[in-house]
């Protein structure tokens, strides 16, 4: 049961990611990216990290994908969408990195059993507020700074 779900989710995720990487039209690629993100969230659920899966759906599918679609809408030029030559050197580097990492994975002995219990949101909250409270606050400051910075970047300059 678990392995069937793994195979199905894996095929959906990798197909979505590959389509997002190679489709010529931006809007199709953005929608396929949503499928890849949903597949990754399903992997998190399968691995017993429900909170991270929900955060993945909320942040990536809910916010990042919508941001990408809006950026495509705001920067649309009909003639730029298709017929752009692909840099084949980049493809070669990507395939080489894949081969090297896969070879390293096959050479490495790894534990095969699942050790940790499934974690609850209550435990995550306790750890976040006790041991990781400074990183949590720093992340809050970082997100505020990113919000203000992105607003300043896209602000229209008024002509005086």
């Amino acid at each position: 049961m678990n392995s069937i779900a793994f195979v199905i989710i894996g095929i959906l995720t990798l197909t979505g990611a590959l389509a997002a990487a190679i489709l010529p039209r931006l809007i199709h690629a953005a929608l396929c990216l949503v499928m890849a993100f949903l597949g990754i969230a399903a992997f998190y659920f399968l691995l017993g990290a429900e909170f991270v899966g929900l955060a993945q759906i909320l942040v990536y599918v809910g916010a990042v994908a919508v941001l990408i679609v809006f950026t495509i809408l705001l920067t649309r030029r009909e003639q730029e969408d298709v017929h752009i030559p692909v840099n084949w050197g980049g493809v070669l580097v990507g395939v080489a990195v894949f081969a090297a990492l896969f070879w390293a994975l096959l050479k490495t002995p790894l534990p095969g059993v699942q050790g940790v219990e499934i974690i609850t949101v209550k435990q995550i909250g306790q750890v976040l507020m006790a041991d990781y409270v400074w990183p949590l606050e720093a992340t809050g400051v970082l997100l505020t700074a990113a919000l203000i910075g992105s607003l300043i970047l896209v602000l229209e300059k008024k002509a005086r």
Binding site: L14, A20, L26, I68, I72, I84, V93, G94, F98
Partner: peptide, 26 residues
Amino acid sequence: IALFAIGLIAALSRKHAIFILIGIEL
């Protein structure tokens, strides 16, 4: 590893800035 390689291919081989960002997200 496959996801990382696909993201790397998207970031290195496309000429469009949004595709590069998609690759980095992957």
